[in-house]
């Protein structure tokens, strides 16, 4: 197994993200329905699918594919998720600029950039029951695993587990921003839809990178 993947051949990771969102469209909407409008999966699927149609054949490089996804979400999706995920993916793409291989060092930078990007455009903090609550622990867990001597693949596994744990921790949180925040205490007891889709996205990325390292 190699410890990195070629960035120019990795545009398919974005296709896998789109497939994952589409496959979970109903589930994401159902989660959102508990304390939101119930349209998270529907709108995400609409935006991601629109991006997929723009990727073209042959697939572009990973940063180009991420930027296409980002631009489509910002330009077409709207809502809160358009800007938030738009910034998340363009921030990731920025870190790939000038790189040929995606290794653990670059991935760690992508995760930090994604976190900072979402922080910049949104008004939420960690603990506010948003996608940050999956993204932040995942970012930290990846860093820690890599620094403590685990290899790239193991660190990705650690990250995936942390994203899931972060997602599940939103059940006990009270929403502080967005539409669900108007519920106050009544927003407690269910998953946050944004943290759920973020966890799905991070796990799909991790799985896709690992598969490419094995291949």
């Amino acid at each position: 197994m190699t410890a990195s993947i070629a960035i120019k051949d990795a545009g398919g990771l974005v296709v896998e993200l789109i497939e994952a969102i589409n496959a979970n469209r109903g589930w994401l909407s159902e989660i959102d329905g508990a304390i939101g409008d119930g349209d998270h999966g529907i709108n995400m699927s609409k935006g991601f699918t629109a991006a997929g149609a723009k990727l073209g054949d042959p697939l572009p490089s990973l940063p180009d594919a991420l930027n296409t996804l980002s631009e489509t979400l910002i330009e077409d999706l709207g809502g809160s998720m358009g800007p938030l995920y738009g910034y998340l993916f363009s921030s990731m793409a920025d870190e790939l600029e000038g790189q040929e291989r995606l290794d653990a060092e670059v991935f760690a930078k992508m995760m930090h950039a994604a976190f900072e990007g979402v922080k910049e455009i949104g008004s939420a903090d960690v603990g506010d029951k948003t996608l940050l609550d999956a993204l932040y622990p995942a970012t930290e867990a990846f860093d820690e695993a890599w620094r403590s001597g685990k290899d790239f693949a193991e660190s990705l596994d650690t990250m995936s587990a942390a994203a899931e744990k972060g997602r599940d921790a939103t059940v006990d949180m009270v929403a502080k921003v967005g539409r669900a925040s108007r519920l106050g205490e009544r927003s407690r007891g269910v998953l946050d839809a944004g943290a759920t889709s973020c966890c799905l996205i991070l796990q799909t990325l991790a799985k896709g990178i690992k598969q490419r390292m094995q291949g």
């Binding site: 609409k46 709207g78 358009g82």
Partner: peptide, 12 residues
């Protein structure tokens, strides 16, 4: 013009 109950995009 946005989706139902959802903000228009930045581009819009």
């Amino acid at each position: 013009v946005g989706e139902i109950f959802s903000s228009p995009s930045a581009k819009a």
